[in-house]
């Protein structure tokens, strides 16, 4: 049987109707049946209120649980954990960072000082070369002989009081040169 024909027959089943006598009798009987009165529930026990209270309670308990779990975990980690990591200790991290900061600032001061002194020395040499070309030539010979060495530069620098590499001989050299300039 084809589907269209089948559906047509199925739709034909709509013509089934109940017996009218039975229908009237049943209707009368049902409508004559007293409807039991619905039990009056107090407002505070109404379905909506109860469901609202239930939701609030669930969320409240969940929040408390999460809060207590986080607190307990952090407390145990700080105080009783056998594998407590120093890296996670905030105080020690701050102290360590401060120390690093200090050492960096000291190094910066040293660099600044050396830079200034180098500048002074260069200025002095320039002045010498202008006023006393013969003297500067002799100095140049000294300087060119050791130009590639960083030690030769150091010989012209004012020693850094904080630096352990400065030597008394280099200080004397510069002082002598300054005396010659003044004469």
């Amino acid at each position: 049987m084809e589907e269209d024909k089948l559906i047509k027959i199925l739709k034909g089943l709509k013509e089934i109707h109940p017996d009218q006598t039975y229908t009237n009798r049943s209707r009368m009987y049902i409508l004559a049946t007293p409807k039991p009165k619905a039990k009056l529930t107090p407002v505070f026990f109404s379905k909506k209120l109860l469901s609202a209270v239930r939701y609030v309670a669930v969320f409240g308990i969940a929040a408390i649980l999460i809060f207590s779990i986080i607190n307990t975990t952090s407390y145990i980690n700080e105080n009783y954990s056998p594998v407590s990591l120093d890296g996670l200790n905030q105080k020690s991290l701050i102290t360590e960072a401060d120390e690093m900061n200090n050492s960096i600032s000291i190094t910066l001061k040293q660099i600044q000082y050396l830079d200034q002194s180098n500048q002074k020395a260069l200025n002095t040499i320039n002045e010498i070369s202008k006023t006393k070309p013969d003297l500067s030539a002799s100095n140049l010979q000294i300087s060119t002989s050791t130009a590639s060495s960083t030690l030769s530069i150091n010989t012209f620098l004012i020693p850094n009081p904080t630096s352990s590499t400065s030597t008394p001989s280099s200080t004397n050299n510069i002082n002598n040169m300054l005396n010659q300039v003044s004469q």
């Binding site: 089943l13 709509k14 089934i16 109707h17 109940p18 229908t23 049943s26 209707r27 049902i30 409508l31 409807k35 009165k37």
Partner: peptide, 22 residues
């Protein structure tokens, strides 16, 4: 509790439900 209102619903759906059950 209006039985006549339920009577209207009965009239509307009775045949349909009967057919389904039958």
């Amino acid at each position: 509790g209006d039985s006549s209102a339920f009577g209207l619903l009965y009239d509307k759906y009775h045949s349909q439900i009967y057919r389904f059950i039958y």
